[in-house]
């Protein structure tokens, strides 16, 4: 006995909503980064649930790709945050609103 596909989709949607609202509310660049990771994970849950209920391996492969993109994003994104912190001594995104320096 397992919950149906709709339960997993609802959980995924709720997690995505929390992540999207968090991106708007957080001012910390690292906090926004973590909210983006949460949204990626919500989408991954959708892929795995569909992969389970349609018996197809493609969804799980795509989750693998999403994880690779998330790892690359972590490396580059945290590099940008460190470079920004060096210039401004802050990771507040409101300090990065000039697109200059």
């Amino acid at each position: 006995m397992q919950p149906g596909l709709e339960s997993y989709l609802a959980l995924s949607g709720i997690l995505f909503t929390i992540g999207a609202v968090g991106v708007v509310y957080k001012r910390n660049a690292i906090g926004m980064f973590m909210c983006i990771e949460l949204m990626l994970n919500a989408v991954n849950l959708t892929f795995v649930a569909f992969s389970r209920y349609y018996g197809d391996v493609t969804g799980q492969l795509f989750v693998f790709m999403v994880m690779s993109v998330a790892a690359a994003e972590a490396a580059v994104g945290l590099g940008i945050i460190i470079a920004f912190f060096r210039n401004r001594l802050s990771v507040d995104v409101d300090d990065a609103s000039i697109l200059k320096f």
Binding site: G4, L5, E6, L9, A10, G13, I14, F16, T17, A20, V21, V24, Y25
Partner: peptide
């Protein structure tokens, strides 16, 4: 943020009932 959250939640429940 509140509007975005409400829109996404509404969409989630729409999908839930559709599925």
């Amino acid at each position: 943020g509140g509007g975005l959250g409400l829109a996404l939640l509404a969409q989630t429940f729409f999908i839930f009932y559709a599925v």
